[in-house]
Design a protein around this nucleic acid. Sequence first.
DNA 1: GATGAATGAGACTTCATTCAT
DNA 2: AATGAATGAAGTCTCATTCAT
Lengths: 191, 191, 191, 191
Amino acid sequence: MTQARAPRADAVRNRKKILAAAGEQITAHGPEVGMDEIAAAAGVAVGTLYRHFPTKTDLVGAVVAGRVARVADDAEAALARVTAGARAADELTAFLGRVIEASVTDRAVKAAARTLGAEPGDHDDEDRGGAAVAAIVRAGQADGDIHPDVTVGDIYLLFSTAPTEQPPAARARWLALVTPGLTTRARQAES
Amino acid sequence: MTQARAPRADAVRNRKKILAAAGEQITAHGPEVGMDEIAAAAGVAVGTLYRHFPTKTDLVGAVVAGRVARVADDAEAALARVTAGARAADELTAFLGRVIEASVTDRAVKAAARTLGAEPGDHDDEDRGGAAVAAIVRAGQADGDIHPDVTVGDIYLLFSTAPTEQPPAARARWLALVTPGLTTRARQAES
Amino acid sequence: MTQARAPRADAVRNRKKILAAAGEQITAHGPEVGMDEIAAAAGVAVGTLYRHFPTKTDLVGAVVAGRVARVADDAEAALARVTAGARAADELTAFLGRVIEASVTDRAVKAAARTLGAEPGDHDDEDRGGAAVAAIVRAGQADGDIHPDVTVGDIYLLFSTAPTEQPPAARARWLALVTPGLTTRARQAES
Amino acid sequence: MTQARAPRADAVRNRKKILAAAGEQITAHGPEVGMDEIAAAAGVAVGTLYRHFPTKTDLVGAVVAGRVARVADDAEAALARVTAGARAADELTAFLGRVIEASVTDRAVKAAARTLGAEPGDHDDEDRGGAAVAAIVRAGQADGDIHPDVTVGDIYLLFSTAPTEQPPAARARWLALVTPGLTTRARQAES
DNA sequence: GATGAATGAGACTTCATTCAT
DNA sequence: AATGAATGAAGTCTCATTCAT
């Protein structure tokens, strides 16, 4: 059973260039950038872009998928720290904060977050991220720090609604407002 | 200094028709409806539409302002109930819930919410709504039910991020997750 | 019941210009000319073209309909001559010949002919032309010159298959080959 | 003078595969199929396809030539039957009918017919078919059944214009209309 | 000689906005 | 003041053909 024939080196290079360029462009100007602009930024012709991604939706999807992977990596790193002894509730909050900050400068991450919030998650990276978050949540619940009925879905739901277009102060405030819903401690006044 | 010459009666009528039609269209299909469609729904020509609103942004803005007025009315009604003896914290949560449900069927309300979250609020209706919400918050704080550092801005911030595209269950869950951030009670398990 | 509001003078002018230009372009280069080219030839912007004809198909259809009208006119003129005493069989053959010659320099006429051959004919001009041809055929059958079972459909069928891409000699020969199928006389040798 | 170096075995194989695939695709979807689709159907890459046929036109031409060969075969078979005693006029009509029916399910045959009608015929298969048809015609003329001035070109001319896009009834009717132009008998009414 | 990725002009269509009537 | 036709840039996608591997 021969494997699907190794992709050509230059095609791989181009695919990377396209994904990188698409990421940058979408990060900077949102998903409504033209395909021509993305192609130009990638240094290829539109046709090439369409060979790799038959549809704009496909391209945006691929970019978003990439961001999901990053988020998953982040979640797994957080879980590793928890396993190593860090407090789960803190790691969860910090993770949430990082994802929000990321989506501020990267509108594709926001879309990724929305995707996570919308779908049960059947792709690899989503599963990976979901599993890590779930483990963190469970750890926090075992500690008695995270409220027993909190689920991964709740976390997704929250960061799919984070105020990424707002100024830093508002984002911090939002996180502070939302955290008590996850933890068991009564809310404390901010400084 | 001559005053701005009283507007012609039919011009006034047209303005109303346009706003109403724009509201319906944007409610139904989002802000991406074409200007032609709005004009047709209003029973006027595009040119007329542009005479009243030099830009699509202006028109959408006007529609949004109308929804802000509704939200303000709702807030004032809630305040009236509080004044009449209702529990402020409950009214606040219920108000938040109503605004969210409204934005589900009315995409213009969503935009209105976003506007409120984004701007300090210098227009009449925003002030009106803001004042009512502020009064409710203060009442709840006086009762000891709402956390002392909660501000009107927090409320705006929250409903500007409500998950209006999600199914009802998710919206309810979101509200439950977010409420503890406003109140002083520790979070209780859901049924 | 007010009529549908008289069309604006300039719009009428443009519609004519567009139809004329589209006719020329399609005549010259076939139906695959670009909409931009047609618009340029008409001296309008593409948008204008699309306002008048929402789809390329619509435009081509309109052009073809125009050619159908011409053919119908021709048929009626022939019928008039028959009524005035001309021999029906001769007029029929001559009419067939003229339509063929027309479709040589005008690919839109060819398409029109194909349309006629394909459809039962429910539009005005098609009916008009069909009625005239039918009358000529009947006259010829009354004279005993045209075979009794010939129908209008036969005529349409024939000129929908005329060899318009062939040199003049071939076109003439084709007509000569096809005529005996319509008439009652045994075929005569050509000069 | 070095001769053109014998072609590589796999190249020959590829040429055949390409022609076969192109035939199928054009038969099925008309000449507007993409080169990529043809290449895929042939199991080769586009580049290979272009090495064998520098232009789409060339490829289509080659396919068409293949269909010409089939028609020639058919004509020779008919001639054989005539030689064996069959009535030439009948064989000619039947042959015409078969070619028409073939072009209905095979759009490449139609193109082939058009080619035959258009060109004097200088390729092998065209000559072969032309010679057979000519012999049949001559036999019919000797019988007194086929009109003396009918030529091979007439036959080509006729089937280059057959209504292959029309329903079976129309095709049959067309053949009936056209036959009297070839034969010496006066036309008879259809049943 | 084969592969298949890259090219890029061009196709159709949409829509916010302007302007002659 | 209203009308609605005109504008034209922009958008997504296709496809015959070229060329590096």
